[in-house]
Computed example of a mutant assay.
Amino acid sequence: MRRRVLGFLVVVSTVLSAAVSAPAAQAAVGDGTPSDTNISFVGRWNRSSASAYVPYWAGAYLRVGFTGRTVKLKQRNTIQLWASIDGKAFTAFSGSGTINLTPTALAAGNHTLIVSYRQVAGSYTGDAVFQGLVLDSGATTFKAPARTRLVEFVGDSITAGTTSSQLAVTGYGFKTGERLGYDHTQIAIGGMCLAETADGCWAHETRYWMSSGGQAGSDQWDFSRYAADGVVINLGTNDRSHGVGSADFQAKYTNFLTRVRAKFPNAKLFALRTLIGRYASETQAAVRARNAAGDPNVFYVDTTGWLPSDGLSDSVHPNDKGHLAITDRLAPILAARLA
């Protein structure tokens, strides 16, 4: 499977959880600047600049509450994004400078916003940089209600939502998280493998640990930034095409589960059978190896029959109907295990 162009989206919806710590001299709480601690930045964001935060991987987003009737987004250069206000359907926006997310003014009162930028990857070179919100005169931000769980969805172009109508936002990971009311992030780039290969497949065994997956250098992610309650892994679709043998895949999957467990000691880990069935027995064997090693919170999820006959946009990638079908099957499993 080729590496596909994915996206960082901008989503407008509800709520916040992770706060940004900023020196007292920086912006005051409630003003909508990047260092406003009322804004929750979910996923892997580079926050080294107080004036511009950069999201990495697919499906990273910000969530915040705001007062007033309008909200605008300050962008540096052109980017595509998706926004959802007050839990309504995500709307696509594209542009640079100040982008008006409310061309029709809202009713006066409190509102919630989610923004997710299109992922900068493959041939897509948009400028996913959050520079702040513009609110009505006298309006402020506020913290949206905290979400009680956070789930990582680890994978390739399928997990990143490639070929679905709104990319990561219409991918099964984003949709499952929103349905359950959990925070969520898609650690995925098109074309990724689990295993490093001689022909250079980008691999999670080396890139999962990086802030940007190697797209913006090899800086390592600080896993203390958030603790995942669940990690859903959907890997192996691309490895077969890059010549990864069964025994090698199984050993590397077992090692990957072991290393993820070290980063998230209390998380439930879910290893999905790839949707086209590649390495199904090897994935299940890796889970059994971890269970035998004394880790009962690693689960194999059999996805056989999850996709309807018209649920693919090509031979591999789910369309919107396919991602919805996956969400319908996956969400109850996560809810039961993470309750």
Rank of each mutant, 00 (worst) to 15 (best):
S241T: 09
A271L: 08
T254N: 06
D314W: 00
F256S: 12
D248T: 15
G294Y: 00
F256P: 08
Y279Q: 08
D239K: 10
S315C: 06
A292M: 06
Y300M: 00
D248R: 14
Q250S: 10
G311T: 04
T303I: 05
L257Y: 03
R273A: 05
S313P: 01
Q284V: 07
T254E: 11
S241I: 03
K252F: 00
P296A: 08
A247R: 09
A289S: 12
R273H: 07
T283N: 11
F256Q: 05
T274F: 01
Y279F: 14
T283L: 11
A262M: 06
A289T: 14
D310R: 02
N238G: 13
T254Q: 09
A289F: 00
R273E: 13
D302Q: 03
R240N: 08
G245L: 09
V287A: 00
F256K: 04
V260M: 13
G245D: 05
V301K: 07
S281K: 11
N297W: 06
L272P: 08
D239N: 14
G243Q: 06
N266Q: 11
Y300F: 12
G294E: 03
Y279K: 08
G277I: 05
A286M: 05
R259Y: 01
L272D: 09
R240W: 04
V287Y: 02
T304H: 03
F299G: 02
G230F: 14
F264I: 09
T237K: 10
D295H: 03
P265V: 13
L269F: 11
V232M: 04
K252W: 00
V301C: 08
P296Y: 05
V232Y: 07
I233S: 04
L257I: 13
L272Y: 07
S309I: 02
V298N: 02
S309N: 08
K263Y: 03
N291F: 00
A289G: 11
D310A: 09
V301Y: 04
G243V: 04
G305A: 04
D302K: 02
L312F: 07
Y279R: 09
I233M: 08
G277D: 02
Q284H: 12
L275E: 09
